[in-house]
Design a protein around this nucleic acid. Sequence first.
DNA 1: CGCAGACTTGACAGTACTCAACCAAAGTGG
DNA 2: CCACTTTGGTTGAGTACTGTCAAGTCTGCG
Lengths: 298, 298
Amino acid sequence: MFPTKSNETISDALKSVSLEAGRQKNGKLWSNLKEVCDLLRIPVSPNSSIASEETLFQHVQFKTGQRIHMIGQPFEMLYVVNSGFLKTVLIDELGNEQILSFPMKSDLLGVDGINSRFYTSEAVALSACDLILIPFKKLTTLGRTYPELENAMYSVMSRELVREQAMISMLGSLSAEGRVARFLVSLSDRFAQMGYSHRIFNLRMTRHEIGSYIGLTLETVSRTLSALHEIGWISVDQKTIEIKDIQALRNLRRLPNAKTRAKDKAKAAKTDKAIMPAVNLNQRTGTEYYESVLRPTA
Amino acid sequence: MFPTKSNETISDALKSVSLEAGRQKNGKLWSNLKEVCDLLRIPVSPNSSIASEETLFQHVQFKTGQRIHMIGQPFEMLYVVNSGFLKTVLIDELGNEQILSFPMKSDLLGVDGINSRFYTSEAVALSACDLILIPFKKLTTLGRTYPELENAMYSVMSRELVREQAMISMLGSLSAEGRVARFLVSLSDRFAQMGYSHRIFNLRMTRHEIGSYIGLTLETVSRTLSALHEIGWISVDQKTIEIKDIQALRNLRRLPNAKTRAKDKAKAAKTDKAIMPAVNLNQRTGTEYYESVLRPTA
DNA sequence: CGCAGACTTGACAGTACTCAACCAAAGTGG
DNA sequence: CCACTTTGGTTGAGTACTGTCAAGTCTGCG
């Protein structure tokens, strides 16, 4: 009776995850080092001394809209997302918000504070969240006891760096369609990784936030989602996304062009609003007609 | 008789720096841990045991065009730039090059390899370069002996992460003019930091490489440089850049707009090709005339 | 029920890309 | 030494894409 669980059931998921990766103590949730490493997808040899119960890290819960840390605040903690969805935001000199990431389960937050000793970005909960507190001082101390932990830290930071490089590459080279497609694909991948459906999911962020993240205006994001919907690669209804042709989305760098797309729209319209399957986007027949008909009416 | 040294004199600079930050041994240059930390601008307490001569790191020289490491190559080394100019390049699925950074003195290279155990980008020398080899294994081992080194590593990686975040923010929010202006300002700052002139310097990279770095085509880069030249904020001649109004460049987010710019060009033309000082870009007088004169001739 | 915020869609405009011609500098080879 | 090629740069014309402005819809919530 249970289909692939959607990411709707946050509170349910939270409960079960909490049981997996935490224990009660003084009425609060705590995780040991091993559990934190597992959460971060850091390989740890099973017989490692890391598995000890000596060092516990406290969980903290945040409600939607709550700030985890603010810009300029002294840096002391790293945070590992155990459940929930967040955004990290940079605010530039003119007060413009720039979304930097949408952290979710198993992501690490707060790394930007290490160098300057205060946070250079802020993190906000987009849903109810369960985070694990990692005091940075404690972490570096532990690193001396467990050499593999040290390597793991380097590894996680390196991973984050590579992720940002990919982001820069995307912003530098992809069209609006390419960016939105990639965004959806990466979300789909993340959800799959977390055990949610990779086909149907809910966006946790607004069009404005998506646009900020991938360097577009909210209108362009909305239009592009509509366009992808219309050619049948996805289905959009407000925050609900259904991926219908992930391979097409993956391969997309630049939609053929606006003219061709208009043609396909025309076809779709002619075939009684049926959604076109994602094949043969490059066909170019019987379309000049459509345009020449429309032009006079405008 | 020595003006502020320009960055022309690479080989000279290399020699002097080598004497500063290296020593001969078996006919090769070596630096100790303290010198490497200084180069990376990592604060080290002077009485620290880090200052020891025990651990030496070898220098390696590269000629223009030589590759320091390639994509997919197993990761073993980090590199610290002691002198010279480089580029790091990402190559995506379709073989498109994407410039990620232009490392120069005191930058760290190769961090992207830590996570995946092989380099995900390649580094190429844009000039003669002197790099210090840091075997990663050796570094992590040393980290256990010198706790402050460990912190320093985290700090450097965090710094790099913040830099990339700023890059993402820029690509997401700035116009072509803003990007080029920022690029020039950041170069100017770097050169100042290295003791070169912040007013006049030579670009080490092509327009194509600049464009890739800041997400524009080479034509747009060229045009924008010409525009900044024309309004008198900089002076461009091929690879030579002279900054004439760095404050204007710093504040630039979006040039008033194309129309206003055309007006200023008109003014500049009328005043017999004199270069306009960078004031009052927003004046909007006597310009419709210019346009209406030009239009018919086209 | 009305309001505010999020989203969609249209019209229009301006920025930046594409294509292309041209120029300059630096090799290359006879 | 001079044609010739190659590479990098500049500039123009035209166009496509994406931003801006604006109107209107939908949703959730007090």
